[in-house]
Amino acid sequence: MSEAAIRITGMNKYYGRFQVLRDINLDVGSGERIVICGPSGSGKSTLIRCINRLEEHQQGRIDVLGTELNDDIGNIDHIRRDVGMVFQHFNLFPHLTVLENCTLAPTLARKIPAEEAEATAMTYLERVRIPEQASKFPGQLSGGQQQRVAIARALCMKPKILLFDEPTSALDPEMIKEVLDVMVELASDGMTMLCVTHEMGFARQVADRVIFMDKGEIVEQGRPAELFDNPKNERTRTFLSQVLSH
């Protein structure tokens, strides 16, 4: 974990006057698995969306895979191809089949030949255990299946970093496990992952580091065992007691 995949230094972000992120400093090593948690509105989504520039930061510096994020569109598109993202609401393209969802970006953005892209897509659909749904449309799948397709779609770009924004929050309890299983498998393959989630079991199992955010700041970070069993900060303690009491 020598080389940093992501390096954020002194980053501030505002929505108008309102400061969403305050003085964020974060280095993510290549292959590192990070879980971000914190109360609603604390800026977790905003933070990871800054990493693939779905949101722009105003101050400080963000380097992803050795490239600084600025207004250079070419750079941004390039980085986005190497940084996959999985959303809370899946955001599959409803007018394309599962297979087309998975092959669209590789053929267009990476210029991979169609047959090769399809073969890759089928491999990843098998890995997320839904190859038999390839010719269906997203609207015909369950939430858990859709989220697994979304993961496969991101993987088809062969990204170096994967961002997850609450991937299981929109799912029924019985579907959460099937998605988490896929994510655990990915983690054991050495993918660099940043995952916003409140699944503490998942965090304990795979995370190298847990980051606790509140009011736009990184309040505390550490190994999952340390942070969960022995939180130093008062705000962390309050949050954890609320989450765990559920």
């Binding site: 693939n52 779905l54 598109d77 390039h78 980085i79 986005r80 191809r81 190497d82 940084v83 996959g84 993202m85 959303f87 609401h89 955001n91 599959l92 393209f93 669209l104 970006a105 267009l108 953005a109 990476r110 779609r153 991101a154 770009m157």
Partner: peptide
């Protein structure tokens, strides 16, 4: 169209 559609397309690196 839900905003998530364009975001997902951006996140995949589509121009």
């Amino acid at each position: 169209i839900p905003v998530g559609q364009e975001e997902a397309a951006k996140a995949l690196g589509l121009s």
